[in-house]
Nucleic acid binder design. Structure first.
Lengths: 232, 232
DNA sequence: GCAACCTCTTGATCATGATCAAAAACTTAA
DNA sequence: TTAAGTTTTTGATCATGATCAAGAGGTTGC
């Protein structure tokens, strides 16, 4: 438990108590499901190793990835509104999670109030990430989307204690395109441009950030601080 | 307090206690700010009357609306991750909110655990709404976006106890376009088509749903239940 | 009532990214 | 190693929505 995000802000004896109760560690293979949209929620989950995708499937079978979860992050809080999951979650590579059964959580939260606060904090963080995604999809070109995604993704990897300048992307081009609201071919072309500009090198799944400043520029970050005006 | 979402699931005496402490009701005029991106959080807010928009402003001054808040809904939970707001919030019409100061909230949550659960529930709901927005922006035509927005918006109005088939849209075309990741002209054209199809009538701000089934169809909902396949 | 202003609508053209098609790169299994 | 199957790249064309431009409809203040 210790390496997880959850115990942050807890007393050592509280961590031990949490540790004793939450012993459910699950090994999950690539593409395996943790739960489906509509399922009655059993638990929320903390990623230990690997990565996961949250997605919704429309009536017509079209799907949309709405979240990506890296080590140290929590997922499954979509079900806290009414005990039913509103997304499906699937592993994108061989992974390992720690399940926090909702029954235990309710009891524990009363004994350890800071645990409830920590779950709240992580949910708020996920909400902000989703707001950022809305911003990314709102009015940005294909290149900006891909570049911005890479910037944010590497930042999150760094936060999760993973290598951030040269690593294996568990996300397929197809999934990435879906997540970014683009076609797979468009993502491929964006990668090409970023390679040609010397921002990155990328083979099938190995990605290397060569020039973070150029990448940030492609993502639409400003260099000089513009004293921008509010829109009113 | 009674007409709000927050007391749901609380005992009568707990509601009274909440009522006694949370007496801060604020009248807010159109376009007035509740807080700005980056502000240290003072409170979370429950909408009593009116509506609000959450948005982020980029370094280059481009802004993106990421959330809309109707009566009975909570906002400001973006700050629960680290006590700093990650969006700005502005009233879209003359409104009335109830502020729940964070200091009081912390104390109250210990005395009334179900209050914390309720805040958690509302945050989870907002997270799902944001996931739905990601899905809306992902891979949908301009018409679908507008029609789907109207479907969801009227549903939420109904949930908030507001008139849902004929009402005044507080959201300007400009804001709506921004929220949906479109240009204002494109939204205007989508409205025209929906009018021509007999789905709606719309003047400047008065909107009337004439044919909800046609509207749902324009939004991409299926009629017959297709036994859809999972994508794997 | 008129002028100034703002928001929304409509029209015409253009650019970006979707779609269709095929080949190349990489993976897996026999 | 070869063959079959994926996934990714590249090319060519097309369609949707962005952009530019002008006008219509409402609102506000004098």
């Amino acid at each position: 438990m210790r390496e997880l995000c959850l115990p942050a802000g807890l007393q050592p004896d509280e961590v031990s108590e949490l540790d004793r109760i939450i012993q459910k560690r699950q090994q999950v293979r690539s593409d395996e499901y943790l739960f489906h949209e509509g399922d009655v929620a059993q638990a929320i989950y903390a990623v230990r190793i690997g990565s996961f995708k949250s997605y919704r499937v429309r009536e017509d079978g079209v799907w949309q990835i709405v979240g990506i979860h890296l080590p140290g992050e929590l997922f499954g809080m979509d079900a806290l509104a009414d005990q039913h999951h509103r997304v499906s979650v699937q592993a994108m590579e061989t992974s390992n999670v720690c399940a926090l059964p909702l029954a235990d959580l309710a009891a524990l939260t009363i004994r350890i109030p800071s645990l409830g606060k920590q779950v709240m904090r992580m949910t708020s963080r996920e909400l902000n990430t989703s707001y950022e995604n809305h911003e990314l999809l709102g009015r940005r070109s294909a290149q900006e989307r891909v570049a911005l995604f890479l910037c944010r993704y590497t930042d999150r990897r760094r936060n999760s204690g993973l290598k951030a300048d040269s690593f294996d992307m568990a996300i397929s081009r197809q999934d990435l395109a879906n997540y970014l609201g683009l076609q797979l071919e468009t993502v491929s072309r964006a990668f090409r441009q970023l390679k040609d500009n010397g921002c990155i090198t990328a083979s099938r799944s190995l990605l290397e950030i060569k020039n973070i400043d150029a990448l940030r520029e492609a993502a639409g970050f400003c260099h000089g601080k513009t004293d921008y005006a509010y829109h009113h």
